[in-house]
């Protein structure tokens, strides 16, 4: 079983990490872009470096960032998940229903959060089973489930916003720990876990193998379908986490607006982070950087008073630029 690594092997892991991770163009380019963006933003607006602003940006980023981490696994394994945005709304509705039916506030919050993770995992399983057992392309499956999940959320609530009077729930997404917003801690903590899973365990290696060449993976005794299925479950669980953070922050969920276009932000973060959309390779750090880049751009455009109608144009431009740079290298 997992031994506690001694200091020597920790150093080994770190050195390995240094050697194989950041210092190649795939991850260096987004990192340089992020630093540049940070410098430019701090010059462009005096409010940018304000602690409160930074804290808000990070919190805003973490909702889609958490989802993007799950999406990274799906995309590396050669799939895509378009349903995550609608899944946020559906899971959000489920959370609040459960919290509102349980009278004890502590129990309500705990069960609500558990249910969110379970529901996210199950919805991911639904996607994954259709992709693996049903042999339908991931794009098509999740395009359909995107529509199904949103529709269910609207039906259950009659399209009305659901809110809760639970006095504790808002502390989860709205609270701080050591001065850092809890969603941000969850985001970074999840990123560390995901990185370890992807680079330091056989599972992660298998995910890459399946995405790079499913046939070779099959001939190597890797259970290709199981791996693909699991990546959708991971994405679903990440959606569950994100839904907890989002609904508790607002203490409510709007079935029509919650998670709207999150799938695009999540995919954009993954792509900007240098993960190949064709699968087979990618990094969690890249995705984190990609999410931060998108968040800072949004914030800077707001701070400098750029028309909100133009923000989509800037975001789209950044995505194109990132992909163009990647193709140049390839």
């Amino acid at each position: 079983m997992a031994q506690l690594p001694n200091t020597k092997s920790m150093g080994g892991v770190a050195r390995q990490g240094m050697r194989r991770l950041p210092l190649n163009a795939t991850i260096l380019a987004p990192l340089v872009a992020l630093i540049l963006l940070f410098v430019v933003s701090s010059i462009a607006s005096e409010y940018f470096l304000n602690t409160r602003n930074i804290s808000n940006v990070l919190r805003q980023v973490s909702y889609t960032g958490i989802i993007a981490i799950g999406m990274t696994f799906v995309i590396i394994a050669g799939g895509i998940d378009l349903s995550v945005g609608s899944m946020v709304a559906l899971v959000g509705v489920i959370i609040l229903y459960i919290i509102n039916t349980i009278s004890d506030p502590i129990q309500a919050v705990l069960l609500g959060m558990l249910a969110a993770i379970a529901a996210g995992g199950l919805l991911g399983l639904f996607n994954g089973l259709l992709v693996t057992r049903g042999r339908i392309a991931a794009f098509v499956v999740t395009l359909a489930s995107m529509s199904i999940f949103r529709s269910l959320a609207l039906y259950f609530t009659d399209a009305a916003e659901v809110s809760t009077r639970n006095p504790l729930f808002s502390n989860v997404g709205g609270g701080f720990f050591l001065g850092i917003p809890i969603p941000v801690l969850v985001f970074f903590g999840l990123a560390i876990l995901a990185h370890i899973l992807l680079f330091h365990t056989p599972y992660g290696r298998h995910v890459c193998a399946v995405g790079a060449n499913a046939q070779v993976a099959r001939y190597s005794g890797i259970r290709v379908e199981r791996i693909v299925l699991s990546t959708f479950v991971i994405a679903g669980i990440c959606v569950g986490l994100s839904a907890i953070m989002l609904t508790s922050r607002l203490n409510s969920v709007s079935p029509s607006d919650a998670g709207y276009f999150y799938e695009l932000d999540a995919i954009a973060a993954v792509v900007i982070g240098g993960t190949a959309l064709s699968g087979g390779r990618g990094t969690v750090w890249g995705t984190v950087i990609g999410a931060l880049i998108l968040g800072i751009i949004n914030n800077m455009l707001n701070l400098t008073g750029v028309s909100p109608y133009l923000q989509g144009l800037v975001k789209g431009g950044v995505i194109l630029l990132a992909v163009l740079l990647q193709y140049k290298r390839a």
């Binding site: 079983m1 690594p5 365990t201 290696r205 070779v216």
Partner: peptide, 12 residues
């Protein structure tokens, strides 16, 4: 690729 298990002590 086939023998990965042998290289795992907690982590790869």
């Amino acid at each position: 690729a086939l023998s990965l298990k042998r290289y795992v002590r907690g982590f790869i």
